[in-house]
Amino acid sequence: MMRIPAFYRPEYAPADVPLLARLEATARKLERLGLVDLHAPPMLDPSRLTGLHDEAYLDAFLTGSEPMASRQGIPWSPRVRDATLAMLGGQLTAAKAARRHGIAMNIARGFHHAAPDCGSGYCPLNGLALLAHDAPDQRVMVIDCDEHGGNGTEEFAARLPNLYNVSIFGTRFGCRGGTRSWATQVRVREHGFQRYLDALDEAQALVDAHRPDLLVYQAGADCHEHDPKSQVGLTTAQMFTRDLYVFRMARTRRIPILFVVAGGYQQAQRVARLNANTVRAAHHAWRAAADDASTGNAPS
């Protein structure tokens, strides 16, 4: 069975920060199930952040200068800073792996609400925008299927000409669409699951129109019907369909895809199961493509 390259190190999940500590459960579950090859990425050199966030905010977060250092909603500590730099190091390393293998995973969260001048929504620094900032000659498109709209990435898309942001969400969180950014609110309990599929069709049309060099998939577990923050209200089966759609989109177009696990506010083991289902969807998409290739039906 194919194992997806996945990136994680203990610094991602400091035990005294519950929102981050739960990443350990996902990493161990994926490893135990044999779904991923787990690798420890290097910590990010902070110099690679120069010019991404505004200088005053970046300096405040790196040094712990309050109140800006805790603006994202998690009280600042050296462990929170180091967790962020570890996850960002994983983000750049996973992007390289995705370009090499076609797919890679960063077992990380806390990126898409961070705006140029401040952190927000438990997101200190924007690791989605970082991918575009770090590779200005590459078109990077984010498919953000979190419960909450990617408002921070939307702000960065207006600044970075190679960054595109597509958000499908239940809670707007300030995300309204803008320059190279498209925002669609869907609440499945009210609008039906077909409306969600229609939104994915619209995202796919944007991929075809802009032909990114890298797709970045924010596979939010907080869209699940039992998540306390969920307004999207997807069932477990519908979440699998969502994930499968995005992975097939990338696989049939031969666009490298990096995915992150993003939000999830149920008990840690429940979130880990949903994250494992996302990885299973990736396996299914890649296996189906391999089967097509073996029968002469490979995507063109």
Score class of each variant (00 low, 15 high):
M1F: 01
M2W: 06
I4R: 02
A6W: 00
P14R: 04
P14H: 10
L19F: 11
K29P: 00
E31H: 15
E31R: 15
G34H: 08
G34S: 11
D37F: 00
L38S: 07
H39C: 11
M43Q: 12
M43P: 05
D45Q: 03
L49H: 01
L52F: 05
E55H: 13
D59R: 15
T63L: 15
S77H: 12
R79F: 11
D82L: 13
A83L: 08
A83R: 12
A83M: 12
A83T: 12
L85W: 01
A86W: 07
M87S: 10
T93N: 01
A94Y: 01
A98M: 10
R100E: 14
R100A: 14
H101I: 05
G102N: 02
A104E: 04
N106R: 01
R109I: 14
A114N: 04
G119I: 13
S120M: 13
N126H: 09
L131N: 07
A132K: 03
I143W: 00
I143D: 02
G150H: 03
G150Y: 02
N151R: 08
E155Y: 03
N162I: 01
S167P: 09
S167E: 07
G170I: 06
R172C: 03
F173D: 12
G174A: 09
G178S: 10
W182S: 06
R189F: 12
G192V: 13
A199W: 09
L200T: 11
D201P: 05
E202M: 07
D208F: 03
R211P: 02
L214S: 03
L215M: 04
V216C: 11
V216I: 11
Y217W: 01
G220E: 02
G220K: 03
A221F: 00
H224W: 06
S230M: 11
S230G: 11
T236R: 08
A237Y: 02
A237G: 09
T241M: 14
D243T: 05
Y245A: 09
F247W: 00
A250M: 02
R254C: 13
I255T: 04
I255C: 01
V260G: 02
V261W: 00
G263P: 15
G263R: 06
Y265K: 10
Q266C: 09
Q266H: 00
Q266I: 04
Q267M: 07
Q267F: 10
Q269I: 02
R270M: 12
V271M: 12
A272N: 08
R273G: 00
V279A: 10
R280C: 08
A281D: 06
H283Y: 07
H284P: 01
A285W: 02
W286G: 01
R287P: 05
A288I: 09
A288K: 11
D292L: 12
A293E: 15
G296T: 14
P299V: 01
S300A: 14
